[in-house]
Simulated scan of single mutants.
Amino acid sequence: MRWTRGIGEGLKLMIAAETPDNHIIQGADALTAWPDGVLSLVWDQAPVHLMGSFVARDLRASFNNGPTDSAFGWGGSVSGKVGVPFIAEKDFITFSVTYGEGIGSDLNDQPSDAVFDSAGIGLEAIPVFGWFASYQHWWSQQFNSTVVYGFLEADNREAQSPDSFKSSQYASGNFVWMPDERWLVGIEGLWGEREDKDGADGTDFRTQFTTRFSF
């Protein structure tokens, strides 16, 4: 459920309540019933589009049907799309920076929101920090490329298992041909790395071919 109101030229306020069923609790069953609360402020004045957001979450869980414990989750994010017509008319940069505690499940790699420590500390929200930036360049009216880099890190709690998510990073680049405004053909390479709490890590590379036709 979302309420939106314009509060000035190119400026609008959004307030939302979102379902909490995506919460990820490590070591216990998630029991959250209250919706996540989201407050966003959007500024849109070409060639700049910016959004600042804040989320508040009620994290609740129980271990083996025992007493329920709770923790407060929160996070802030700034994202945007900025045109760079001084480089090329259609080129633009996108970016996002996010920090918070108990919001991991809202991010692409979905680290845990919280961990349940049955030894006595109870439910602990896990801090996370992530960002990404991309640049799209149009070589001509039919050809364009986008390069992206992203990074995400969790500040692991003592109670988390050794194989818990610690950090990830990825980089990608593509080349896209649009023979018609409704038809797209492209190829992309993507490299990624993950590291766990115990220091174990691994990398992978993927090549992807895509085509899309819009009716």
Rank of each mutant, 00 (worst) to 15 (best):
M51L: 13
F95L: 13
P20R: 08
D69F: 12
A46T: 11
F92S: 08
V97D: 07
D36Y: 12
A125G: 01
A133I: 14
G100V: 08
F54C: 07
D91V: 02
G83K: 03
T32K: 06
G27W: 07
F132D: 03
A88Y: 10
I24G: 13
P85R: 04
L11F: 14
S112V: 05
V97R: 08
G52R: 01
D58L: 01
A125M: 01
G27P: 13
A125H: 00
D29T: 09
V82D: 02
E101S: 07
V128R: 01
Q26T: 02
V84H: 06
V42W: 05
D29E: 10
V84D: 02
D109F: 06
L39Y: 12
F116Y: 15
N22E: 14
G75S: 10
H23G: 01
D117M: 02
A46V: 07
V115E: 06
V82L: 09
F95K: 05
L41Y: 11
P35C: 08
K12Q: 11
L50V: 06
Y99T: 15
P20W: 04
T94M: 14
A56H: 14
N108I: 14
G73Y: 09
D44W: 00
A56V: 12
S53V: 12
F95A: 09
S96T: 11
F92A: 09
D21M: 10
A28N: 06
D69L: 15
A61I: 06
P85V: 08
F54A: 05
V128L: 03
D113E: 03
H49M: 15
V55A: 00
W131H: 05
S62M: 06
L13W: 06
I87Y: 09
I121S: 11
G80S: 04
R5S: 15
K81E: 11
A133P: 05
G100K: 07
A56C: 13
Q136R: 11
G52S: 05
I7Q: 01
A114L: 03
S40A: 14
F63N: 15
K90F: 03
R60M: 11
V128D: 07
G27L: 08
T98E: 04
A71Q: 04
E101M: 08
A17M: 12
A71V: 01
L13I: 00
A28Q: 06
G102N: 00
Q110L: 03
H23W: 03
D69Y: 14
D91H: 00
I103G: 13
G37R: 15
V84Q: 04
T19M: 02
S79R: 10
L59G: 12
S62P: 06
S134E: 05
W34Q: 12
G80I: 02
D29P: 01
S53I: 05
V38K: 04
I93T: 01
T19C: 12
F132A: 02
H137V: 03
L13G: 09
L31E: 10
L39C: 09
A61C: 04
L59I: 10
G122P: 05
V82G: 09
S77V: 10
M14G: 06
D113Q: 02
S96W: 10
